[in-house]
Every structure is written in structure tokens, then in C-alpha cells.
Design a binder for these strands. Sequence first.
DNA 1: ATTGTATATTGCAATATTACGATATTTAAA
DNA 2: TTTAAATATCGTAATATTGCAATATACAAT
Lengths: 109, 109
Amino acid sequence: MGLTKSEIFTDEQNQLSTLLKAIAHPARIAILQRIMISNTCICGDLVGELGLAQATISQHLRELKTAGIIQGTVEGVSVCYCINPKTWKSLEEQLGVFLRSYKGETACC
Amino acid sequence: MGLTKSEIFTDEQNQLSTLLKAIAHPARIAILQRIMISNTCICGDLVGELGLAQATISQHLRELKTAGIIQGTVEGVSVCYCINPKTWKSLEEQLGVFLRSYKGETACC
DNA sequence: ATTGTATATTGCAATATTACGATATTTAAA
DNA sequence: TTTAAATATCGTAATATTGCAATATACAAT
């Protein structure tokens, strides 16, 4: 079908997978790294630095924004994007719980 | 196009996004949680517990296996899957570096 | 060898994602 | 108010993902 059956999973599972999907693309990882380094970033800079078209980068930015991972404010003719601290913290926490629930001592196979 | 331009990104970015994509699905998160809880798990159990068809679960398991996140050994007629500790640690590290590179103090927008 | 059980693979339909050119929108400056 | 610059949106093509029925494969027990 091509359509995830979200209704059979918990809210936590759906929420975490949505956040992960948003960052599970090299371009979006690169964008986030760039934003974190300068703690501010405009779309035009990214177009120069990554090798993707302006429309494509704008689209990736929108996906990150829709997921709540970044937020943007208009600065004259350009837009300043930065990390949304709340979502970032939430992602860190959810991922921490998930990753740390593996106790690696006793591998079974 | 529908095809990620991997060649313009670093190996680190591509590697992390590949691992993230593998776990960025509620069914695969549920499968991993189930594997971690019992530290052993066979496909049949999952078919009973999640609401997905056997073929679908088998497919998700294969994706996790291809990404190196789980490994499986044949146990008679069934298969025992468990976390691949090496990949799991690598994911924890890569994600840790990525997530912690955000210094939340000075939000700009 | 045949049967039953467990998992994998194949083939397919529906939907989602990625990328980009073309165009729209928005704002600042001339 | 025209022009230029920066982003956003639309439309579209190519590819990927999700899910499942049907079938294949592998093994254990009879």
C-alpha cells in the first residue's frame, strides 16, 4: 500500500519515528550541522554550500520546520533558521530512553 | 528524481542518515523494543503482537538486518534476532556527537 | 518421503520521497 | 513604482517505501 499503519503503534513510537524520519536524510543532517555551527543560517548560504538546488533546500527546510526541529524568522529579505530547543531536547530524551534500553552485556546470537 | 544525491555529502552524513532511516519507522521501533526487552525474539512472536502481516514483518526485519542493526541466527525452524552491539554502539556515538553539537544557550530566533 | 511449522521472497498496488525548473511571493533599495 | 534579491510554492518526473497475498524455502517430526 505505501501507507504506514500508524494506528497500530503507540504515540511514543509514532512520534519518535516522525522526528527520526525528519533527520534521516544527509541533506537535512548537513543543514542542521550548518545551523548548529553558526547558530543561525539563511537558505542562500546553504544553496552555495551544499550542491542542491534552491527549491530542494527550501523543501528540506520546510520538512524540518514542519517536524518542529527548526524554526525561522524573517530577516528582511532573507530568513534566519535555528534549532527549536524544545523539540531538540525532546528528541534527545526520547532517543536516550530508546537507545539506553539496550543492555548489551548478554548478546544472545 | 526521487534519488538522494549521496555523492555530495560526507561519509559520516550518509552513514548516520542510513542508520536513522532504518529505525525511522514505528514498526521497526516496536520490533527493536521487543527485541531489547526479551533479548531474543522470533518473527512469529512479532506477528502475533504487532498488527502486521508476516511478510511485512519479515521485510522490516530484513531492513534492520541489512542496516546492520540486528543479527539473526537460525534456531531450528525459527530465527532468533538480537541487537548487533557494534552497530548499536556506533549509532549511539554518532548520534551523541550530532545531538550534542547543539549548544542551546543562545537561541537566535 | 510427507506433513506441518516458521520464515523468506516475489510481485504488485498504493502512497511517499527526492529533486528541480518554472513561477510566485516578499521585501529592500533605487 | 520598478527592479533586484531571497525564499517559497507548484508541477512534474524518477525512484523509494509500505503493506500484503501468494508462493517458496528450510527444517523437524512423523
